[in-house]
Every structure is written in C-alpha cells, then in structure tokens.
Amino acid sequence: MNAPSPDNEPDRSLTMYFPHFRRRLPQALMPLPMLLLMLLMLLLVLPASGLGSVARAAVPHESAQPAYAEEQTILQSEKDVPEPGFGSAKSGRNHFDRHFIVPPGFMPEQDVILQRGGNTWRNLRNGPIASIAGTILLVVPLLIFGFYRAVGPAAESGGGGGQIQRFTSWDRIVHWATAITFIILAVSGVIILFGKNIILPWLGHSAFYWVALLSKYLHNFVGPLFIVCSVLMFFTFLNRNIFRRWDWQWIKKGGGMIKHEHVPAGFFNAGEKIWFWGGVTLLGLLMSVTGLMLNFPYFKSIGSNFGLTRYLLQMADYLHIIGGTLYIAAAMGHIYIGTWGTPGAYHAMRYGTVDEEWAHSHHELWYNELRDRHAGAPSHEPLPPGAPSHSRS
C-alpha cells in the first residue's frame, strides 16, 4: 500500500489533540500549512481574553482559569451564553459528540466533557488549601510538644485506693473502633493529599504506586465504617456529654492544666465535652456527608436517577480537606490529653477502671455521685461495680 500523499493527509500534530477540528473545519482548510492553522487558532483564542467580565459574573466558577487552548476555544464559542447559576442543576457544558460517543453512567453531567471549574479546583486544592492544611498539621504537634515541655502533664494522682469501673466493655469497643478507623483515614488521607509531592520523590514511582493505591482503597472502604462507628459513639456517650453549670468553671480555669490544679468535673470534663460536640459530632458530621458525596457521586434508584454535579463535588472536596485537617489537629490534642497530658486517663480507656484516688482528683463530682448513690448499701452486701470503697470529704 502506498503511503498517503502529504496533499491528501491532514497534519495530525494538531488533529490528534483536537479531533473535533478534523470534523468541523471545512475540508478545504485541512491541507493548509501548519503555520496557517496556528494563526487561525490564535485568532480564535485571542478574543477569549475579552471574556474576563463574563467569567467573573458567572456564578459557580466566576474565577475559573482555562487550562488548555481547546478550553479557550470552547469558552470563545460560548461567550454570549449565560453561565448556569446556583439554582441550576448544571455546572458545565455539553460537549460530547453523541454520534460518536455514548456516555455511560447515571450522573446528571455524564455528557459534560469540559467543566469550567475543574482547573480552578485543581489549583486551589493543590495550592493554597494543601499548603494551609500541611502547615496546620506540622505546627499543631510542635505546639503540643512545646506546651508539654513548658507546662508538663497534669498533677499525678492515684495508687491509694481500689479500682473503680469507669468504662464498660461496650464503651471501650466503640471508642477504639472509632479511633482505629479514624487513624486509618487520617494517614491514608494525608498520603492522598501530599503523597505525590512528599513521598513519591524519595520512594520512587513503583513503590509509591502501591502505597497510593492501598491508601485510596483503604480510605474509600474504611470511610463508611468510620461513619457507623461515629454514630454508635455519639449515642453511647451522649448522655454523659450534656453541658452542666459547673463546666463553665472548668473552662475558665483551663482545666487547671497550667497551674496543675484539679478542677471539679463530672464523668466527662468540659474539655472532653467540647471534643465530643466539636470533633466527634460536628466535624464527624461534616466529614461523613462530604465523604459520602465523594465516595458515591452517583447511584441508580428505582424510577429516577440522582447524582451530584462536578461543582458540588468540588465544594465537597474543599470542605472535606478543611474538615479533615481540623479533625486531625483536634485529635492530636485529644490524644495528648488522654495519654501523656493526663497520667491515668489511658489506663481507664484501655482497661475500663481507674484508681479511686484518680477518680476523686480528676472527676470529683462524678466520684461524689457514685459515693452518694451507694452510701445506703447494706454492709453485708458487696458494693456494685464502680462504687467507691470509702467516703471522702
């Protein structure tokens, strides 16, 4: 077979990247030299610079920055078409040639081949959002370490009494299941966000491929399990995290951590309640909703299809990264206070019991409640689990 003549074969250096030109440009233009095609492209792209006011007025992606020349061309062809607003279900334009491509799936934007906010999302996610998140995750542990070195742990107490039951087996199972799934999500999420810039250069492409792949699947599959654990934790500890009037005194004194004093507290002190409502509940809800949006962008239901636009998924990704960063930072503080910051606290969550002296010092109101509850028990009957062995003033 003879090689095609240059006069009959279009220049593929352009058409291979912009196949729609091959179909849409008149056949008479195809044999033109490459220079003329480049000039024609330039004439099509330059007027797009005048779309600044239109782009800024667009509601979903008013500051979108086009990434490629083809995108510039499409923007030019749509310069007089209003951008969909917040009330519209669409966040992009339809660019699939339905005669050649049949898009699969049930997403409402399954035939959108180009979405204006894509490059804007990429620049924000990998730029300022990732930089701020990374800074927070580096600064917070340094601040905790500095606080530990400057102030030290809470005053130690314990060893002078019997053991009191503080957490049941169910309490500890729910807590550790939530904690383990959270750590898996935190580590895999950090790898997904920063892996290409931090781990890839020294680990290499082959090894990092498996690390990234494992992180992705762990994050996707452990996420729903973490939601279930968080819901169980919420209802398990809800009645013990209701704020009381004495919690304000604990807050005003900062829990006595700086002056090493024991501020009276109930079963949970005000700091633990703030973590419960701000971290486990509020941030947990934010991470759950945005995580489900990103994990299940579309699904088929009976009788109708429901899906998420790219714009909503981009907003969910922003919130997921911000919420995840704050959640991890707050968890660092929680882990510190529950281990090195408060000697004896880790023993309670691991074994379920605490020393009587420790309970009286750190949670005096709860201790007194147990004492009063069992004060009238007959002397010949053994005290129930968790009852103090003797009274205190």
Rank of each mutant, 00 (worst) to 15 (best):
E364A: 12
H334A: 11
Y311L: 00
T339L: 14
H334K: 06
L326K: 11
G338P: 08
Y336R: 12
I321K: 10
A330K: 05
R350F: 10
H362W: 06
I335N: 06
L313C: 00
G352Y: 06
I322S: 11
W358M: 06
E356V: 10
Q314N: 12
H347V: 03
F306E: 00
Y346D: 00
Y327D: 04
R371M: 15
H362Q: 09
Y351G: 00
N305Y: 13
P384M: 11
Y346P: 00
R310V: 00
S379P: 01
I321C: 09
P382F: 06
E356P: 02
P384E: 07
T325M: 12
L313V: 01
G307K: 03
I337D: 02
S379M: 11
E364Q: 13
H363N: 14
T309N: 08
E356G: 04
I322R: 05
A377F: 12
G338V: 06
G324K: 05
W366Q: 07
A330M: 14
G324E: 12
G341Y: 01
L313F: 02
E357D: 15
H334L: 03
L312H: 02
P343H: 11
L319Q: 01
R371L: 15
Y327E: 11
A375T: 04
H374K: 00
H320V: 14
A348F: 03
P343R: 09
G338I: 03
I328F: 10
S304N: 03
L326C: 09
W366I: 11
R373W: 04
H362A: 13
H360W: 13
D317F: 07
L370K: 15
R350K: 11
G324P: 09
A348D: 01
L383I: 12
M332C: 13
Y346I: 05
G376T: 11
A359R: 01
A348K: 03
T342W: 03
Y367Q: 08
L308K: 08
H334Y: 13
H347N: 05
H334V: 14
G376K: 10
L326A: 15
A348P: 01
D355E: 03
H363D: 07
M315P: 00
T353W: 06
A316E: 01
A345C: 10
H362T: 06
H374F: 15
L326T: 02
V354W: 04
R310P: 00
A329N: 12
S361H: 12
E357T: 12
M315V: 14
E357R: 07
V354P: 02
R373V: 00
L312Q: 09
L313Y: 03
T353N: 11
I337H: 13
V354T: 07
N305R: 01
L383Y: 04
R310M: 07
G376C: 08
G338Y: 05
G303N: 05
A331N: 13
I322Q: 05
L319T: 08
L365C: 09
P378N: 04
G344N: 05
E381S: 09
H374M: 02
A348I: 00
T325L: 14
W366C: 07
A329Q: 11
V354A: 15
W340F: 10
R371I: 02
G352L: 05
G324M: 04
P384Q: 10
L370N: 04
P382Q: 13
T339C: 13
P382L: 14
T342Y: 02
A329Y: 09
D372I: 00
E369K: 14
Q314H: 12
A377E: 13
T353L: 04
W358S: 09
W340K: 14
S304D: 04
G376M: 13
